[in-house]
């Protein structure tokens, strides 16, 4: 691999990498929030809301993310909603990943024995207090491993946004390839960069999980 060329284009690539990281972080946070809304709707006890969540989830699980991206980018303008590339991309990641986030949260909440909540109520905690002091701290430990997996998926899928010209890492790589005619080298380099970031991310999450679940070892 031609190191000199990589160095020459490093600033451009680095710029793209920055966008990838920002857009991924935003996508993860937004889909967590939206996922929480989905869980709340489903657990609200209002049937129509729960049905809407069901249908929405089924649709998302059935269609490819690239098709969703095209629908948002090409179809929404037809009905008068024109989004910038970046906004369309972020909306796609959020809509696509929020049902997965919701699923993780549901799983974690359900895994906590209901007796614990009853105990919390019996000492006089409010529902909110019980959620904040009993459910969330435990659910956190259960959420981190699947959250890591889903977030890795989101970071990888953010590369797809290059197709609608969001200036993230894969897009910049494509630009560099067009200028250098060294596609194999630069795409391999891109793979190495993604892999490194995700490796660091995965291991960081793992050590975070160990810290959060330390209470389990104290037996």
């Amino acid at each position: 691999m031609d190191l000199e060329q990589i160095l020459k284009y490093a600033p451009l690539l680095l710029e793209g990498l920055k966008v990838t990281i920002i857009i991924s972080t935003a996508g993860i946070l937004l889909s967590i929030v939206t996922g929480a809304v989905l869980v709340a709707m489903q657990r609200s006890g209002i049937r129509p809301l729960a049905v809407i969540v069901r249908i929405y989830t089924e649709i998302i699980l059935g269609i490819p993310i690239l098709v969703l991206l095209y629908v948002i980018y090409f179809v929404l303008p037809d009905i008068g909603l024109r989004l910038s590339e970046l906004a369309a991309g972020l909306l796609t990641l959020t809509l696509y990943y929020s049902p997965y986030m919701a699923e993780i949260m549901r799983g974690a909440i359900d895994a906590i024995p209901s007796g614990q909540l009853e105990a919390a109520r019996s000492v006089g905690m409010s529902r909110l207090q019980a959620a904040r002091r009993i459910t969330v701290p435990q659910a956190l430990g259960l959420i981190i491993p699947p959250l890591t997996g889903i977030s890795i998926g989101l970071v990888k899928d953010s590369a797809i946004l290059s197709i609608i010209s969001v200036h993230e890492f894969a897009f910049e790589t494509k630009q560099v390839v067009a200028r250098t005619y060294a596609p194999f080298e630069f795409w391999t380099f891109a793979a190495i960069c993604y892999w490194t970031i995700l490796f660091v991310w995965e291991n960081g999450m793992r050590s975070l999980e160990r810290r959060v679940t330390r209470y389990r070892e104290a037996r």
Partner: peptide
């Protein structure tokens, strides 16, 4: 397994296509 899970499919596709 680590490489395949740690890199975007889009990038893998280009690596294979140009490889």
């Amino acid at each position: 397994v680590s490489i395949m899970r740690g890199t975007p499919l889009l990038v893998q596709l280009f690596v294979v296509f140009f490889g």
